[in-house]
Nucleic acid binder design. Structure first.
Length: 862
DNA sequence: GCAAGGTC
C-alpha cells in the first residue's frame, strides 16, 4: 500500500485536519522530537487505497544566517554584509530536530500533501519541508505527480474536504518572495545594527543599551513613538473661550447647554458673544428631535484587537498578553490566538461554544437567554483566510486559570458573547435653543435595549436623566450665561494600543510579530512603558530617530517596509525576477548604508548632547595590566571596563555584579582580577578582564572566567579549583567557589548547578589527590572547632564530596542529586588523570558515562 | 551580540 505524507504548519492543525479527514478514525503517536505528532489512517488517494500520515512542523524549519566567520563583529566590515558575506540556511530550532524528524517520517512515502498555512510564509515552509523530505521519499513512477498543495481558508469540515478534493501545487514564486524578504532583512538589519552599535558604544559610556539595533520594523515602530514625543514637545497651548449657558428646566433641575460654535480663539469676539446673550432672560426652544440610534456589537475578535484591549483595559503588555493567550490555547480554553480574521465562516458552529458558557456563574443568564431566544448573526468582518476569530472553547473560572489568564479569558469570552448579541439601542433626544442670536443644544441618550452592552458593561451608554418634555416655541428661563477660558492641551505619549493600530495600518509586522517589535524597542531602552501603558521614548530613542531624520528620513519612515513589500509582491505574483529584485533592493540599501556611514557625524552631534564619552563614565575599579593605571567600570549596558590611558575596552558578563577581587592579578597579563557574582543563585567566580576578551589558550573561548581557564598552575584556574563533572550538564565541571566561605559552594562552570557544602568550615582547598572511585578531586576541609561535624576533636578531613560518607552528609546538590554518577552506580570518569595534567578538561564526557540517566538509575537499583 | 518571520 502506498503512503501519503501530509504536513501542517503546527501540531494542533495536523490533529484537527487529520480528525476531519479520517472522520475521527486515526491512530496517533508522538514524533521523535516530542513536540510533533503523527496521525495515521487509511483512505483513498488518486483512486487507490493508501495509508495517510498526517504530521506537522513548528513554523519555519529553517532560518537564514551568515556563514559563521561573518558573524565575528570585529573581523568583518558591516558593509560586506550587503553582498560579499554568503548566507546559509540553518535549522530554525535545532532542539526540535525537524529535518531529521521529517526524514524519518517521510522515508518511503510515495506522495506528499502540503497543508501549510495559506500565506506567503506557509508557501515558503512548503519548500523547506520538500527540501528535507523529497530526497528520502520513494521516486516518482514515470512522470507521476508526487507533490501536492492543499489550499484551505478555514479549519472546517467542508473547507478541509474541498481542499483535499482539489489539490494544487505549491507556489514557488510566493516562496521566493519570502526568501528575498529574509535575505533583505538579514543583510540590511545586521549591517546597520553592527555599524551603529560599534560606532556609538565605542564612544559613549551611558547609552545603557546592550545593542543599538536597526530593523525595517522596529525602527519605524520607534519612529511612531518619537513622532508623538516631538508633537508634545513642539506643542504650543492656545487659549480659547467657550460660552456656557444654563437654563432652568423646573424648580430643582437645570440643563447645561452646548454652544453650537463650540469655541472661539479670539477673546474679544468671545466677549462680544457673551455681551449679546448674557442679558437674555429666556432661552427659546427652536426644535426638538428624537432619534433612535444603535451602538454596534463588536466584530469578532482577532489578535491585534485582543492585544489592544489587553493593553488599554487590562494593563497587559502585548508580549505578555500573547503568551497568556497561547497558554489558554494550548490548554484548550480558547481557539488559536493568532489570526487576522474578524469574520466567522458561514458554517461555523457558534452555538457550541456559547452552550459551553450556559452555566458560567458570571454570564449564565445572558447566555441562556441568547440560546433560548436565538442568537444574532455576527457582523460581517474581514476574512483573511487564516484562522477563525478568537473564540472561547471551554468554560473556565478564575480559580481554575489564575488571576491574569482569567482576566484575558473573561475578556475573550465576553467579547465572543457580545458578537452574537444584539446591538445596543438608544434614543437620542435633542433640544435646540436660541438665546439672543446664539444657538445652543442639549442632548441626552436613553437606553431602549442594552443588547451586547449587558455582557460588555464598560461599553454601556451612560445613564442620563431624560430631557423635560417641550416643543418648538417653548421657553426656559436662563439661569446663567458665562464665558469659560480654556487652553488646548498637548497630546499624551502614544499608548501601546495606539501604536498597535499604527503598525497595523502601515503594515509594520504581523499579528504574531507586532508584540515582538514593541518588546524590542523596550528592551533596547529606546522607550519605556509608563503608567497607562504609554510609551515614552528615552534620550537614546529620540536621538536615534532625530539622527535618521537628519541623515536619511526613509530609514525611519513607515514606508520603508511597505516599499520593500511592494517589490516582494512582484516576485510573489511572478511579475519580477527574484534575483533582480533582491539585487536591486540590496543595492539601494547598500548606497543608503554608505551614505549613512559617511554622514554619521550628523547623528553623533545629537548623541554628544545627551551622552557622555567613555572616558568620562564609570568608576575606577581594577588596574590595567598594560599601563597599571585604574580602569573604569561602566555599569550601564553593555557593562565593561575601560582603560582611558590605553583607550581599550574590555567587555564583562552582562548580568550580575562586578567587584574587585582582592587586588589579585592574572599571572598571564598582570590585569587585576574582578569577581563576578549573580544575585539569584549566589554563584560567583573571578575573571581576568583581558583573558575574558582575549582567550589565552587554544581550548578557551571568548567570555570565559577563571573557572573555565585551563592555566595549569594559576590558583584561580579550573585546573586548580575544579572538582569533577557536573551532575546535570554534559560539558560542565563543578568548581569550588573560593570566595563563598563560610557557606562554601561548588558551582558548575557551564550551567546553573550550585551545590552548597560545609557550612562550618573556615578553610576549603582542592587537593591534588583524586577519588579512587569517581575520580573527582578530593577536598581538604578545616572545620570550626566548635561546630565540627567530625568525630572527637577532629577538625580536618580530606575526602570526595560525592563518595566520602562524612562529606556526603554535608553536601546538598541543588538539582537532581540522583543524577550524579555516585547514584548511578559506579565510577563515571576515566582513570588516571592527575592534577596539572589536564585533569578536568571540559567538553569531554567520560567514555564510561552511561548513555542515559534512566538506564543508569536502573543499573543502580539492580 | 545583529533582522523578521514562523511556532512551543
Amino acid at each position: 500500500m502506498k503512503t501519503v505524507l501530509m504536513v501542517a504548519e503546527k501540531p494542533s492543525l495536523a490533529q484537527s485536519i487529520a480528525k476531519i479527514l479520517s472522520r475521527g478514525n486515526m491512530s496517533s503517536h508522538k514524533g521523535l522530537n516530542g513536540t510533533c505528532s503523527v496521525h495515521e489512517y487509511t483512505g483513498t488517494f488518486a483512486g487507490q487505497q493508501v495509508r495517510f500520515k498526517m504530521t506537522s512542523v513548528c513554523g519555519h524549519v529553517m532560518t537564514l544566517d551568515f556563514l559563521g566567520k561573518y558573524n565575528k563583529w570585529d573581523k568583518v566590515d558591516p558593509a560586506e554584509l550587503f553582498s560579499q558575506a554568503p548566507t546559509e540556511k540553518k535549522e530554525a530550532n535545532p532542539k526540535l530536530n525537524m529535518v531529521k524528524f521529517l526524514q524519518v517520517e517521510g522515508k518511503g512515502c510515495d506522495y506528499i500533501v502540503l497543508w501549510l498555512d495559506c500565506d506567503k510564509e506557509g508557501e515558503n515552509i512548503c519548500f523547506e519541508v520538500l527540501d528535507a523530505v523529497l530526497p528520502v521519499m520513494n521516486p516518482a513512477h514515470g512522470g507521476d505527480k508526487t507533490v501536492f498543495r492543499a489550499r484551505f481558508s478555514s479549519i472546517t469540515d467542508t473547507d478541509i474536504c474541498n481542499a483535499m478534493a482539489r489539490l494544487g501545487e505549491p507556489d514557488h514564486n510566493e516562496a521566493l518572495s519570502v526568501d528575498a524578504r529574509q535575505e533583505l532583512d538579514l543583510r540590511i538589519g545586521c549591517a546597520f545594527t553592527r555599524f551603529q552599535t560599534k560606532y556609538f558604544q565605542g564612544k559613549y559610556g551611558d547609552l545603557d543599551s546592550s545593542l543599538i539595533s536597526f530593523g525595517p520594523c522596529q525602527t519605524p515602530t520607534l519612529g511612531f513613538c518619537v513622532e508623538r514625543h516631538d508633537r508634545i514637545q513642539s506643542f504650543k497651548p492656545e487659549t480659547y473661550w467657550v460660552l456656557q449657558a444654563k437654563v432652568n428646566a423646573d424648580k430643582d433641575r437645570s440643563l447645561l447647554l452646548d454652544w453650537d460654535r463650540v469655541r472661539v480663539f479670539d477673546r474679544e469676539i468671545a466677549q462680544m458673544f457673551l455681551n449679546m446673550t448674557k442679558l437674555e432672560k429666556e432661552a427659546q426652544v427652536e426644535a426638538t428631535s428624537k432619534k433612535e440610534k444603535a451602538k454596534q456589537r463588536p466584530l469578532a475578535l482577532n489578535t491585534v484587537e485582543m492585544l489592544r484591549v489587553a493593553s488599554s483595559s487590562l494593563g497587559m503588555g502585548p508580549q505578555h498578553a500573547m503568551q497568556t493567550a497561547e497558554r489558554l490555547y494550548t490548554q484548550g480554553y480558547i481557539s488559536y490566538p493568532r489570526t487576522e480574521t474578524t469574520h466567522y465562516p458561514e458554517n461555523f458552529d457558534l452555538k457550541g461554544p456559547l452552550r459551553q458558557q450556559a452555566n458560567h456563574p458570571y454570564w449564565a443568564d445572558t447566555v441562556k437567554r441568547l440560546l433560548a431566544e436565538g442568537i444574532n448573526r455576527p457582523r460581517k468582518g474581514h476574512d483573511a483566510g487564516d484562522h477563525p476569530p478568537i473564540t472561547p472553547m471551554r468554560s473556565a473560572t478564575e480559580a481554575e486559570l489564575g488571576s491574569e489568564p482569567w482576566r484575558l479569558y473573561e475578556y475573550i469570552t465576553r467579547h465572543f458573547i457580545a458578537t452574537v448579541s444584539y446591538d445596543c439601542k438608544y434614543l437620542q433626544n435633542t433640544i435646540s435653543f436660541r438665546i439672543g442670536p446664539e444657538h445652543f443644544t442639549c442632548t441626552v441618550k436613553t437606553v431602549i435595549s442594552p443588547g451586547f452592552t449587558e455582557i460588555m458593561p464598560w461599553q454601556s451608554v451612560p445613564l442620563e436623566e431624560s430631557l423635560p418634555p417641550c416643543q418648538r416655541g417653548d421657553t426656559f428661563p436662563v439661569a446663567e450665561v458665562k464665558l469659560l477660558e480654556k487652553q488646548t492641551s498637548p497630546p499624551d505619549y502614544l499608548t501601546e494600543a495606539e501604536l498597535i493600530t499604527l503598525m497595523e495600518k502601515h503594515g509594520i509586522g504581523t499579528d504574531a510579530s507586532i508584540p515582538v517589535h514593541i518588546n524590542n524597542i523596550c528592551q533596547r531602552n529606546y522607550v519605556v512603558v509608563e503608567s497607562g501603558r504609554r510609551l515614552k521614548p528615552t534620550n537614546l530613542g529620540i536621538v536615534l530617530v532625530h539622527g535618521y531624520y537628519k541623515i536619511d528620513a526613509e530609514l525611519v519612515l513607515p514606508t520603508i517596509r511597505s516599499a520593500v513589500e511592494k517589490q516582494l509582491n512582484l516576485i510573489a505574483q511572478g511579475k519580477a525576477d527574484y534575483r533582480q529584485v533582491l539585487g536591486h533592493t540590496l543595492d539601494v540599501f547598500k548606497r543608503k548604508f554608505h551614505y549613512f556611514v559617511d554622514s554619521i557625524a550628523g547623528m553623533d552631534e545629537l548623541m554628544e548632547v545627551s551622552f557622555s564619552p567613555l572616558a568620562a563614565t564609570g568608576k575606577p575599579l581594577s588596574r590595567c595590566g598594560k599601563c597599571h593605571r585604574f580602569m573604569k567600570y561602566i555599569q550601564a549596558k553593555p557593562s565593561r571596563l575601560h582603560c582611558s590611558h590605553c583607550d581599550e575596552t574590555y567587555t564583562l558578563p552582562q548580568n550580575g555584579t562586578i567587584k574587585l577581587y582582592k587586588e589579585l592579578r592574572c599571572p598571564l597579563d598582570d590585569f587585576e582580577l574582578v569577581l563576578w557574582s549573580s544575585g539569584s543563585r549566589g554563584k560567583s567566580y573571578p575573571l581576568c578582564p583581558y583573558c575574558y576578551n582575549h582567550p589565552p589558550f587554544r581550548d578557551m573561548k571568548k567570555g570565559m572566567g577563571c573557572n573555565e581557564c585551563t592555566h595549569p598552575t594559576c590558583q584561580h584556574s579550573l585546573s586548580m579549583l575544579g572538582i569533577g563533572q557536573c551532575v546535570e550538564c554534559e560539558n560542565g565541571v563543578l568548581v569550588l567557589d573560593p570566595t563563598s566561605g563560610p557557606k562554601w559552594k561548588v558551582a558548575c562552570n557551564k550551567c546553573n548547578v550550585v551545590a552548597h557544602c560545609f557550612e562550618n568550615a573556615h578553610r576549603v582547598r582542592v587537593s591534588s589527590e583524586t577519588c579512587g572511585s569517581c575520580e573527582a578531586a578530593l577536598l581538604d576541609v578545616d572545620f570550626n572547632k566548635a561546630k565540627s561535624p567530625l568525630l572527637g576533636d577532629e577538625t580536618q578531613h580530606v575526602g570526595c564530596v560525592f563518595c566520602d560518607p562524612v562529606f556526603q552528609e554535608l553536601v546538598e546538590l541543588r538539582h537532581a542529586a540522583s543524577c550524579h554518577p555516585m547514584h548511578r552506580g559506579g565510577p563515571g570518569r576515566r582513570q588516571g588523570r592527575g592534577r596539572g595534567r589536564g585533569r578536568r578538561p571540559a567538553g569531554k564526557p567520560s567514555a564510561r558515562r552511561p548513555k542515559d540517566k534512566m538506564s543508569a538509575l536502573a543499573a543502580y537499583f539492580v
